[in-house]
């Protein structure tokens, strides 16, 4: 196999969506419409992104188009964070700052130190990996931090009442939130290759790249993601703390979010 998927192959793979729909009907889960809708939507989105990417990263195209694509991804990620964690004040701009910082750090290392050649075909996918895989941790750390400070308000105010600054008083809760957000990625990194074969490596092998080379690329991607998760969560945690305390070291009122349905 040369790694290319024909239209017939794509159509054949859709039968697996049929399997999921049949299981839903069989077990009366009521999810068959959602399964079909999700698959159709994903296919359309991927085709559109593929067409866009083909335009942006084709050989000879200015690198600025790829940079614009990365900026758009970062901005969209900020909007996603805002929708997923509406109870966190200022989360959109804090997330944008966090993804921007992570992009500078991680892409700076990978391209600045020539791990990958700086081209559209490398910049856009790697930035996408970085943003996409940091998103969950970014939302998690923001929500966890708000919960910690809201639920342990008595303890936080006891620290403030002892004359601690808001930065010092919030430190134990920042650490708890950061640990809870970064630990899953550490576990995923530890399990890579043993429990599951990650996407980038699988894709490369399917595309005909020798496994030894695919493994190296995957290792770089895993390190990129871990570094990005640590960077984005740290920036978000520090940014959220600044928003939750006043300049005179008082904890703002933090209402409980409305119950989610």
């Amino acid at each position: 196999m040369d790694g290319e998927v024909s239209i017939a192959g794509l159509a054949t793979s859709l039968s697996l969506i049929g399997v999921a729909a049949v299981i839903s009907l069989w077990q009366r889960l009521g999810l068959e419409r959602q399964v079909v809708w999700a698959a159709a939507r994903a296919l359309v989105q991927l085709l559109l992104v593929g067409a866009g990417l083909a335009l942006v990263i084709e050989p000879g195209r200015s690198l600025w188009w790829s940079a614009a694509w990365v900026l758009a991804m970062v901005a969209y990620a900020g909007d996603v964070a805002r929708r997923r964690a509406p109870e966190v004040p200022g989360i959109m701009w804090i997330s944008i700052a966090a993804f921007g910082t992570a992009a500078l750090v991680t892409l700076g290392v990978l391209f600045g130190l020539s791990v990958f050649p700086l081209e559209g075909r490398t910049l856009v996918p790697i930035a996408g990996m970085m943003v996409g895989n940091s998103m969950t941790a970014t939302v998690l750390v923001a929500r966890r931090l708000v919960e910690e400070l809201r639920d342990k308000r008595d303890e936080v105010e006891a620290r403030l009442a002892l004359g601690q600054s808001s930065k010092v008083a919030s430190m134990p809760y920042v650490r708890t939130a950061l640990r809870s957000a970064i630990s899953p990625q550490i576990e995923t990194t530890k399990a890579t290759g043993l429990v599951f074969l990650p996407g980038a490596m699988t894709g490369l092998i399917l595309a005909g790249v020798p496994p030894a080379q695919a493994v190296l690329v995957q290792a770089v991607v895993m390190f990129l993601i871990l570094g990005a998760v640590a960077t984005t969560t740290a920036v978000v945690a520090l940014g959220v703390v600044r928003r939750l305390f006043t300049a005179d070291h008082r904890l703002r009122w933090l209402p409980r979010p409305a119950a989610r349905t």
Partner: peptide, 18 residues
């Protein structure tokens, strides 16, 4: 505020051991 709070200490309704 930080100096004031060290001058004016406070004990809360529920004990708050760290």
């Amino acid at each position: 505020p930080l100096r004031l709070r060290r001058q004016v200490g406070m004990v809360f309704q529920r004990p708050t051991p760290f």
